Simulated assay, not measured.
Amino acid sequence: MHGTVAAGYEGVREEFATVVAGEREDYAGQLVAYVRGELVVDLWSGPGFSADTLTGVFSCTKGAAYLVVALLVQDGVLEPDQRVSHYWPEFAAEGKQDVTLRELLAHRAGVVGADAGFSLEELADDRLIAARMAGQRPYWRPGAAFGYHAWVIGALTGEVVRRVTGRSIQELFEERVRAPYGLDFYLGLPEELEPRFATTLPMLPTPEQQAEIDAEVTGVESLGGIAFNEHRADAPELWDFPNQRIARAQGQASSGGVASARGLAGMYAAATTGLDGRPPLLKPGTMAEFAQIQSIGYDVVSGTHKAFGLGFSAVGEFYPFLGQGAFGHSGAAGSLALADPRSGLAYGYTRRRYAYPGGAAPENDGLLRACVTAARATR
C-alpha cells in the first residue's frame, strides 16, 4: 500500500489496508478524498498500479456528463422542465413528444435501449446512439415508471446539449472542467496517455457467488437485457468495454470515461467546494436541485431499489451516513465517485478487477464511512 493521508485521516488508511489484505493478491485500487478542496487521502495499491494509473470508470462517466448539463442549467441555457423535443425535434417520434429534460435525466423516459441493440462500434458513438434512440418507441409510458438508462443516457442528454450549444458533452467537459483543473478524467483518452491505462480484469466470483449469478440470470430479450445491450450477440461484454481503444478514444458519455481516483474525486471537489484556489463550479441552488430525488423506488430495469436526482445517483439512499443532498455515481467494475456537500467531502475510488456483484464495490461502504467520519471530526 502506498500514498499519504492528512492528520486525522489515519482511520481511512487503516480501512484501506484492511481492504487490501482481504482481497486477492492481484488486487489493484486507488482511493482519494478531498475535504473542502484539500487533498486529505491519496492511497493506492496493487501490482503495476500507481496514483497516476488510469482505468475505465464505466458509469462514473455519467457524473461528468451530468455536471456539464448542470452547468448549462445554471447558465440558463437549458431548462429542466422544457420538453426534450423543443431542443431536439426528432425525439418527438413514437409518443415521446412530451418528455421533459427533467424526466429524461430522472430515467423516466422509457427509452433504455434499441430493439436491435448496438455493436461495439455503434455503442462507442454517442451521435449514432442518439439518432437511433430518437425513433425508438418507449418501453413504458414516459413518466409512468423509471428504469436505469444504462448505455444510452449520456448520448440522449448529449444530443440535447449539442442541439443547444453546437458542442458535444465531451468538448464542454474538456473546456470547462477537465482542462482548467488538470484532472485525470477523460471523455476521450488521448493516444499519448494510453501507456498509463490499465485494462479492466473480469470478475472472478466464488462458487457461492457464481451460484447466485446463475440463479439471477434474466432473458436477454427482457427489459434489463435490452437496457444492458445483452440481446445483441456481437456486442462487447460490459466488463470489457473500456478495454477497447475505440471506447476510450471516443469517450462515450454513459460509460466510456477513463480516470484515476484523483480525477474522480477532483471533479466533485471542483464542482462543490472549489479546487486549486478556484471557486466551486456549481452554486448551492444548482447542487441542491440536481441532488434532489426525482425517482425513487422500484427500478423496472434493474429490478432493485434505486434513487436518482437529476441524472446523478442520490447516494445518501445507499450510504445513509452521508449528509442530505449528497450526489454522485458508481461504475460497474466497482468504482464510486461522489460529493457530500454537508461534510465538504469529495470521494473517488477505482479498482482494476471487476467486483462482485457489479456496481459500487462492497468495500466502498467501509472506505466511504471512514472518510466521512474523519471529515466531520476535523471540521
Rank of each mutant, 00 (worst) to 15 (best):
E289C: 09
P341Y: 07
A375D: 02
R232V: 06
N229L: 12
Q244Y: 14
G219L: 07
D98I: 10
A17T: 06
L67K: 12
Q292K: 15
G166N: 04
H329G: 07
R379F: 12
A259L: 05
G135I: 01
L101K: 00
A51R: 14
A134G: 02
R342W: 08
L120F: 02
L105Q: 05
T55D: 09
W88Y: 12
V220P: 10
V41L: 13
Q292F: 13
A65F: 08
T218F: 08
A51T: 08
G309K: 07
V372H: 07
E171G: 08
D214G: 11
G63L: 10
P362I: 02
G110A: 07
L275A: 01
S260R: 03
V20C: 00
T304N: 14
L281N: 00
Q170L: 00
A361P: 03
G328I: 01
Y319W: 03
V12L: 07
G219H: 12
A134C: 05
F241L: 15
R376A: 10
D214C: 04
C60Y: 04
L101D: 00
R36K: 14
G303L: 06
G263E: 00
T373F: 11
P320A: 04
A339W: 02
A109E: 09
Q210C: 02
G251V: 02
H329K: 10
A314F: 02
P280M: 06
R162Y: 14
P138D: 01
P280C: 11
F290Q: 09
P80W: 06
Q82A: 15
F321R: 05
G297Q: 08
D126L: 04
G297Y: 12
L264S: 13
S302A: 15
G309Q: 10
A17P: 05
L156V: 03
F173T: 01
E221T: 15
Y27M: 11
G344K: 02
A265H: 05
R248V: 02
D81A: 06
E216M: 13
L67P: 07
V300N: 04
M267D: 00
D299K: 11
I296Q: 15
L39K: 06
D184T: 04
V12R: 02
D26H: 12
V40I: 09
D42R: 11
G224C: 09
P195R: 11
A247I: 11
A332P: 03
H305L: 15
E191W: 09
D240G: 11
P280S: 12
S50Q: 04
V12M: 07
L39Y: 01
E208C: 02
Q250E: 09
I213M: 10
M287G: 14
L71M: 12
A291T: 10
K62N: 12
L238D: 13
V99N: 10
G359F: 00
E14K: 14
L172Y: 01
G366M: 06
S343F: 03
F228Y: 11
